[in-house]
Design a protein around this nucleic acid. Structure first.
Length: 355
RNA sequence: GCUGGGAUGGCAGAGUGGUCAAUUGCACAAGACUGUAAAUCUUGCGUCCGGAAGGGCUACCUAGGUUCGAAUCCUAGUCCCAGCA
């Protein structure tokens, strides 16, 4: 299966579910693929149950693409943000969470991902803390490279065990770390290319201290990629950021924003009267719509005229507000469906504008 | 009619002499959210001045009173609720 025509945006189904949606809902948004997470599935489900189910796709009854993340982001979002939750050594990451100790090594992460039955695996990386100085950032880059080498070895070993031909095997992606230090990013990217992957991702935290998106780093990474390499914006991003990154050559994205924002009452709305009229090259081609406002109590118009999702084609702003006020899960579901359809339209528009 | 309970900010509901412009929840408003420990979190919410610190004014049903000081105590009134007739 591998990947659909690029560029693509995959919403996050961290625990083998896009929060608040079932698989049919995901399909209705014309989403082509999803991202699942090694750490959460390892901790909360375990590989045996997923194998018994026939792999992650069969478990979810999902016919689209699946990328698995390695657990590298949790090195940052859990351990480095809160040292009580674990520690990192060259061996791997030791998570201490919910009264459990879970050691995740590059090898374990790779083997787990290969057993999920996904289309693309990601190597375990050592997340560079955004506050790291050059020395600490350099350490994380060196460990990321060390782990990438070991991951590649393990990957090849598993392919051999499973007798996977180069055509049958999943794609494998490295991750570029190094924080805001361009020399480290460049070095990391070059080393990953030497090891040999199908592509690499812009890892770490892509937002600068001033709150702006770090396009400089995005450029450095893109410039370090050989021709035909997959370029993945890990955890990226806002619609306008994805448009810009696509122009730089990035062709895979995933992000929690559309799903989390949906549940948090932030809906994306194209500034256009129809899907045809959408112009993603306009400066402000979309706005936020926050349904949970008294002024929408009697607004019987749809959330967006430039959308054909379940919410927009069937229900009004007044009804959506009512659902949020009532506290029913349906509100989050419809909002999530809408935002994912926004992103799938976005990727269609980007595809068209690139050709 | 009798007996008892009660009237607090948009609503619900704490507080029962000073630390009360008044806990908390809801509602309302503004903001955040980027490889998901997030259907979450932050802030504001009588009014006026101030960027803030802070200060002024008006407030706990109404009218009197006690007290240095009252949302809190006393008296009268109005209204509400429960039980009994």
């Amino acid at each position: 299966m591998k990947l659909p025509p690029l560029p693509v945006f995959f919403p996050d189904a961290t625990r083998a579910v896009v929060r608040s949606l079932d698989t049919a809902d995901i399909e209705s948004t014309k989403t082509k693929g999803i991202l699942v997470n090694t750490f959460h599935l390892y901790k909360e489900v375990g590989i045996e149950r997923i194998k018994k189910a026939g792999g992650i796709k069969s478990f979810m009854d999902w016919g689209g693409s699946v990328i698995s993340d390695s657990g590298g982001f949790q090195v940052g979002s859990l351990v480095k943000k809160n040292p009580k939750l674990g520690s990192v050594t060259n061996k791997g990451v030791l998570f201490k969470l919910d009264g459990r100790r879970i050691l995740l090594t590059p090898e374990k992460s790779m083997r787990f991902q290969m057993n999920l039955g996904v289309d693309m695996v990601v190597v375990l990386d050592d997340f560079t803390d955004p506050l790291a100085d050059h020395k600490i950032a350099q350490d994380s880059v060196e460990r990321t490279i060390l782990w990438a080498k070991r991951s590649r070895v393990e990957f090849d070993k598993i392919c051999k065990e499973k007798k996977l031909s180069p055509k049958d095997r999943p794609l494998i992606l490295g991750v570029v770390q190094g924080g805001k230090y361009q020399d480290l990013r460049k070095f990391c990217a070059e080393e990953l290319v030497k090891i040999g992957f199908d592509g690499f991702g812009y890892g770490g935290w892509p937002i600068l201290a001033n709150g702006e998106f770090d396009y400089e780093t995005a450029t450095t990474i893109a410039n370090s990629a050989p021709k035909g390499y997959l370029l993945y914006g890990l955890g990226i991003g806002k619609p306008d950021e994805i448009v810009k990154m696509s122009k730089m050559g990035y062709n895979i994205f995933d992000c929690v924003l559309p799903t989390r924002d949906g549940r948090h009452k932030r809906l994306y709305v194209y500034n256009a009267d129809s899907i045809n009229d959408i112009d993603i090259n306009k400066d402000k081609f979309y706005s936020y719509y926050v349904p949970d406002k008294k002024k929408y109590t009697e607004d019987y118009s749809p959330v967006s005229k430039a959308c054909d999702c379940l919410l927009c084609s069937r229900y009004s702003r007044a009804y959506l507000r009512h659902l949020f006020k009532t506290g029913d899960f349906t509100a989050g579901r419809l909002a999530t469906i809408h935002n994912l359809r926004f992103y799938s339209i976005l990727m269609d528009k980007i595809k068209k504008s690139l050709t």
